[in-house]
């Protein structure tokens, strides 16, 4: 059951990237369609109040830097998600500076949103439900899981992206998985 998201361009990536960098709209569209769903899933957990906005800002920045980018598909994704992460952090700061916003509204960018366990059990675990499951983890664990599973980055890349050691990223992934398995067992979800 290997995923639909992930390194779907694979071998052809180099030529797609090169064409996009030369201005091919078709090629750039392919990069966008390949990456935007994963990007949104990541942002819906780490910046739930502004996922679409942050995604749009991320892409604008990527468009501006595209000609100067060098790297393979893993590097491309690392760049995309690094950019998204910084935009999400900026967005969270911007929100927290807004005086009219209640503190509860500024924090959730880094806090899990917790639906009822009953909701998890009743509906099929669709993508949205799976994302809310991840969102219940402590932020670092949630981010590690998303970057590994949704963004398709390897442990080393995630460690660099987050500024942590590879060991701590591995531990966070392990703990996150155990916690989610526990939540699912507790909710008695059967599929």
């Amino acid at each position: 059951m290997a995923g639909i998201l992930g390194a779907v361009i694979g071998q052809g990536f180099e030529s797609v990237l090169a064409a996009a960098q030369e201005g091919s709209e078709v090629a750039f569209s392919r990069l966008w369609r390949d990456s935007n769903p994963a990007l949104l899933r990541y942002l819906r957990v780490i910046a739930p109040q502004a996922a679409e906005d942050v995604a749009a800002e991320t892409w604008l920045q990527v468009v501006r830097g595209l000609a100067g980018f060098r790297g393979d598909e893993q590097g491309w994704r690392a760049w995309l998600f690094t950019t998204a992460r910084r935009r999400a952090i900026d967005e969270a700061r911007r929100r927290s500076r807004r005086p009219e916003k209640a503190i509860e509204e500024t924090l959730p960018g880094w806090l899990p949103t917790a639906p009822d366990t009953a909701d998890l059990a009743l509906e099929q675990i669709g993508t949205r439900s799976a994302l809310s499951l991840v969102a219940r983890l402590p932020p670092h664990q949630a981010e590690v899981i998303l970057l590994r599973v949704v963004a398709g980055l390897d442990n080393q890349t995630v460690a660099r992206l987050l500024g942590r050691s590879p060991g701590s990223v591995r531990v966070a992934a392990h703990r996150g998985m155990r916690t989610m398995a526990g939540i699912l067992a507790d909710a008695d979800v059967t599929l």
Binding site: M1, A2, G3, I4, L5, G6, R33, N36, P37, L40, R41, E52, A55, A56, I125, G126, T127, S129, A130, L131, L133, V134, L146, V149, V150, M177, M180, A181, L184, A185, V189, T190, L191
Partner: peptide, 20 residues
Amino acid sequence: PLAEALAELRARPASDELEG
């Protein structure tokens, strides 16, 4: 169940994920 949930994280893009 966890493996199933993770598969959903990787599931085929929904139409609203291709807007914009």
